[in-house]
Amino acid sequence: LKGVVVAGGVLAGAVAVASFFLRNKRR
């Protein structure tokens, strides 16, 4: 169960970083 929580956190972080980079590329 702990691994699932960690994986979810990593996935959420990756999505946040990806969206951040996409926003920067638009400018």
Rank of each mutant, 00 (worst) to 15 (best):
F20W: 14
G9P: 07
A14K: 06
V10T: 13
V6K: 02
K2S: 10
A14L: 06
R26S: 09
G13M: 14
V4Y: 04
R23P: 09
V15H: 04
V5G: 13
A12D: 09
S19P: 08
A18F: 01
R26I: 11
A18K: 13
V10H: 06
R27C: 00
L22V: 12
G9Y: 00
S19R: 13
G8D: 02
A16Y: 14
V5F: 14
F21W: 13
L11F: 14
N24L: 00
A7Q: 02
A18C: 05
G13S: 04
A16V: 11
L22A: 10
K2I: 05
G9S: 04
A14V: 03
G9C: 04
V17E: 01
G13I: 15
G13H: 00
N24W: 14
V6T: 01
S19L: 05
V5N: 04
R27K: 11
L22R: 12
F20Y: 02
L11C: 03
L22P: 07
V17Q: 00
F21T: 06
A14I: 12
F21G: 06
V15E: 10
A12M: 13
A12N: 14
L11W: 02
A14C: 02
L1Q: 06
G3V: 06
V5Q: 06
S19N: 08
A18G: 10
G13T: 13
F21H: 15
G9I: 15
V4L: 11
A7G: 06
L11N: 09
G8L: 08
V4D: 08
A18E: 10
F21A: 06
V5Y: 15
R26M: 01
L22Q: 15
R27M: 05
R23M: 15
V15M: 14
K25P: 00
V15I: 12
F21Y: 14
V17G: 01
K25A: 06
G3I: 07
R23E: 07
F20I: 08
F21K: 12
V6F: 00
G13F: 06
A14M: 14
V17H: 09
V10M: 06
V10R: 12
A16D: 02
R27S: 03
F20D: 02
R26P: 15
L11R: 11
G13R: 13
K2C: 15
K2A: 11
G13V: 05
F21P: 12
A12V: 13
F20M: 06
A12Q: 15
V5P: 12
K2F: 08
A12K: 04
V17M: 02
N24T: 11
F20A: 01
L11K: 04
R23I: 01
V4A: 11
V4I: 15
G3L: 07
A14F: 14
F21M: 15
A18S: 12
A14Q: 04
V15R: 10
G13E: 08
R26A: 11
L1M: 02
V6E: 15
A14Y: 15
A18Y: 09
R27L: 12
V10C: 12
A18Q: 13
R23C: 06
A14H: 08
F20S: 06
G3S: 10
V5E: 13
A7H: 00
V5H: 15
V4T: 02
L1C: 06
A16R: 09
A12Y: 00
V10D: 13
V10I: 00
K25M: 00
V15T: 02
V17S: 12
F20V: 03
V15L: 06
K2W: 05
A14E: 05
L22I: 13
L22C: 00
A16G: 10
G3F: 03
V4M: 15
G9A: 09
A7D: 01
L1N: 10
K25N: 04
N24K: 13
A16P: 01
G3N: 03
S19E: 10
R26W: 07
A7E: 13
A14T: 11
R27F: 07
